[in-house]
Structure formats: C-alpha cells, structure tokens
C-alpha cells in the first residue's frame, strides 16, 4: 500500500469518526481511495496481496457502506456491499473478522426487506456464516429477522415498537421507509376487514399522531370521512365480478384432449 493511500485512509477515518461526521469530505475521499485501491489491486483482491492491506481495504469499503446509508444513497450501498462480499466470504480464513461485518450484513437484510425482496432476503439469510439457531443471539441479525417475521404474520404493532430498538444508528434510516410500507399494509387490511372505523381508532391503528395527517392519508386512499360522526367508511370493493377464465379453460381442455389422444 502506497503512503499516499495510507494518508488518504487516515484522513477518511478522521472525517468519518468525527462528531458529527463530515459526510461531504468523506465522500470525496472515498472516491479518491477507490481509485487508489484499484491501482493497488485491492478493490477486487488479486493473488498474493498483503493481508494487512486487505483488511484496510475492507475497512475503507465498510466506511463507504455506512457513508452511503448516511447520505441515503441505497444504490451506492448496494455496490459497496457487493464489493465487501468478496472480503467476507472468500477471505474469511485469511482476514480477522471485522466488527462491522454483521451490522453491514444486517443493514443489507433490512434493505431487502424494505424493498419487499423477500425471496432474496431468505436466500441471504441462508448464506450467513452462522448456524441458523444462533441468529437470535446476534442483535444485528435478529433485528431484521424479527421484523420480517412480524411483517409476515401481521404483528404490525411490534414492528412499530421495534423502530426505536435498532441496534445501530444506520438502521434507523430504513425505519421511515419501513413505516411507510407497513402503513400501506395496514390500510390494505383495514379496507378488507372493516366496514367503518372511528377516526380516533383509525389513527391509532395506522400510527398517526394527529388527525390532519390521517385525513390527508385517507384522501390519498379514497376513503370517505364523515366528520360529523367521526367515522371513516371504507369503500367496499363490492362483490368482485367473477369472470370465467375462458382462454385458460379452453387451452386446458385442448391439452387434455391432446394427451388423451396420445395415450389411447
């Protein structure tokens, strides 16, 4: 590792760890560092590099991942995470484990969750380098796991309550988008499950603190609000018209006929 890279790295550490961290400066430093890493053959590690250098490269990328979250740049987080995977998976025997590994893996899980990529969420979960029954003891991993479970079974209030229990500062960034997701989920459930609701209860169910917030949301979803009686009436979708899936039935029947023809 060249001295120039080392200097930049020290600067990045200083900029990022200072309170509050200097995001703009970190960003420009990261860009320079990445070019430096490519020159040194460390961004995508080649054969025969010094493990010491590798762990510094890993740290730079980790800071990059956190930086992306703080600047709310999800695609950039995605890139940093893919680059880090090489370090976490293929060099796990060479490098000492990083203290930031699990926070970043956890963040990635939450990202998948908020984007509703459940299948990928589970695939990623399976490929974690931990036995499945010890997930619960790792706070960074158990948090997204619990969120997913509650979301799937419908315990939305638990998700809501858990938003303050995030194990790391960066997790809170996802809370907002997550809340948006569950609010829409709840609204969908309410439309199906209730005829009407008192405004006050609807606000609690949807976790709105004030009435105007609720009202604008109700307007957005097209609910009828009766202010004199203080109730919200959900538009009934009515009995869905049952339509005969003609084409499907015809093609199925033709298929049976053809197969029968072949058998007989």
């Amino acid at each position: 590792m060249t001295t120039q890279l080392g200097v930049l790295y020290q600067e990045l550490l200083k900029a990022f760890t200072s309170q509050p961290s200097d995001l703009q400066k970190s960003g420009s430093l990261l860009a320079q560092l990445k070019i430096g890493l490519i020159d040194a053959g460390l961004l995508i590690p080649q054969e025969g590099v010094n493990p010491q250098d590798l762990s510094i490269a890993r740290e730079i990328l980790e800071i990059g991942a956190f930086w992306s979250i703080r600047t709310k740049d999800i695609p950039s987080f995605d890139r940093y995470f893919s680059q880090l995977q090489t370090f976490y998976n293929d060099y796990s025997s060479v490098l000492p484990p990083s203290p930031r590994e699990f926070p970043i893996r956890g963040l990635n899980l939450i990202r998948l969750l908020t984007q509703n990529r459940i299948a990928e969420f589970h695939t990623t979960l399976e490929s974690l380098p931990l036995p499945a029954d010890s997930f619960a003891s790792n706070p960074y991993i158990s948090h997204p796991i619990n969120l997913e479970r509650w979301l799937m079974e419908g315990s939305y209030s638990k998700v809501w309550n858990a938003r303050e229990e995030a194990p790391a500062e960066e997790y809170k960034f996802f809370v907002d988008s997550l809340m948006g997701t569950i609010r829409n989920e709840i609204a969908g459930c309410e439309e199906a499950a209730y005829n009407s609701l008192p405004i006050k209860d609807a606000a609690t169910l949807l976790f709105f603190r004030s009435q105007p917030e609720l009202l604008s949301y109700a307007q957005q979803r097209g609910w009828t609000v009766d202010l004199s009686e203080n109730t919200i009436t959900f538009t009934q979708k009515g009995e869905e018209k049952v339509e005969v899936p003609k084409e499907k039935l015809i093609s199925a029947n033709l298929l049976y006929a053809r197969e029968l023809e072949m058998i007989v």
Binding site: E153, S155, K158
Partner: peptide, 23 residues
C-alpha cells in the same frame, strides 16, 4: 392489538371470511 392486526391480515389474504367490528 396484535390479534386485531393479524386477523385483519388474514382477512385480506383470504385465509378467512369475515369482518372485524372494532367498537
């Protein structure tokens, strides 16, 4: 509270048929 959300979700997902009377 959980029960209410869970039942609501079950209705929406078509697991059961029914209505919740909140009051």
């Amino acid at each position: 509270e959980d029960a209410e959300y869970i039942v609501g979700k079950a209705i929406r997902d078509g697991v059961i048929e029914g209505r919740i009377l909140h009051e």
